Amino acid sequence: MTNAIETRLAELGITLPGAPAPAANYVPFVRSGDLLFVSGQVSMKDGAFVTGKVGADMTVEDGAAAARACALSLLAQVRAACEGDLSRLKRVVKLTGFVNSTTDFTDQPKVINGASDVLVEILGDAGRHSRSAVSAGALPFDVAVEIEGIFEIA
């Protein structure tokens, strides 16, 4: 039986990627009670890193698209943690977004909106969350965006 989140993804024409494997010595997620802590997901498209520095060789819109991709990878990790059953996802609690940006770039919140917007589009009110959006002078693999998340699950 298809659940409401999977139905909504299909309505939006969104296919979640596979849950990316960790790139170093950490686990992709940890559950503590009803909270699921998902490790930082980096910007990827079609299996390749989305790289660049926002404010130099990437626009805010490019960065927002990269953040959107991170959000979909976060949901893929949630699905993996819930053994394939996204109906166990109750809400997004918090996102922390890191933007590979120039020192004079100050629109990090607009970049991370790419993630926030798609989560609300998919999950409705359950996608609304607290959030931090910060600049990073560099990110692993020169990716444009990395986002970690905390989710409430059943």
Rank of each mutant, 00 (worst) to 15 (best):
E146A: 14
L95V: 00
K45P: 01
R8F: 01
A138M: 14
S39M: 07
Y26A: 09
T106K: 09
T7E: 11
A65C: 06
D125K: 14
V134F: 06
V134T: 13
G55I: 10
D62M: 07
A136F: 07
S101F: 06
S116W: 11
G13Q: 13
A133V: 00
I14D: 13
T96C: 06
A126M: 04
V60Q: 10
V54E: 02
Y26P: 05
N113G: 08
F37R: 09
L35Q: 13
A154F: 04
F49Q: 08
P140M: 02
A144E: 03
S39E: 15
S132M: 05
E83T: 09
V99P: 03
V30Y: 00
T7P: 00
A10R: 09
V27K: 08
S87F: 08
A115V: 00
A154H: 05
S132D: 12
T2A: 10
P140I: 08
L16H: 08
A81S: 10
A64Y: 05
T7D: 12
A126N: 08
L123S: 04
F141H: 15
F98L: 14
A23Y: 14
A4W: 12
V27E: 10
G52P: 05
G47M: 06
L9P: 09
V92G: 00
E121Y: 07
F141T: 05
N3T: 12
S116Y: 11
S87L: 07
F37Y: 14
A144F: 02
D142Q: 09
V38C: 08
P17M: 04
R79A: 07
A10S: 13
A154S: 11
K94R: 15
T7N: 10
Q77N: 12
D85T: 00
G18K: 14
I153N: 00
Q41C: 15
L9E: 10
R88E: 13
F141P: 00
A154W: 02
G47P: 04
C82H: 01
R79Y: 00
D104M: 04
G149V: 01
G97R: 09
V93I: 12
E83A: 15
A69P: 01
E152G: 05
K45T: 10
R128I: 12
A66Y: 03
V27N: 04
G97W: 05
T7H: 11
A76I: 00
F151Q: 00
Q77E: 09
A65L: 15
E146V: 14
V50Q: 12
I150K: 06
E121D: 14
T15R: 14
K45Q: 13
G63D: 10
D142H: 06
V30I: 13
S116I: 12
G52V: 08
A56D: 15
I5H: 01
A56T: 14
G124A: 05
A24C: 12
G52L: 08
F49N: 11
V60W: 05
V60P: 04
E6F: 03
K53Q: 15
K90I: 11
R131M: 15
F37D: 11
A71E: 06
L72F: 06
L75P: 06
M44K: 14
V111H: 03
G47L: 06
G63S: 10
V60D: 12
I122M: 13
R91S: 10
T96Y: 11
K94A: 15
P140G: 07
L16M: 05
G52Q: 06
I14V: 15
T15P: 01
M1E: 08
V134P: 01
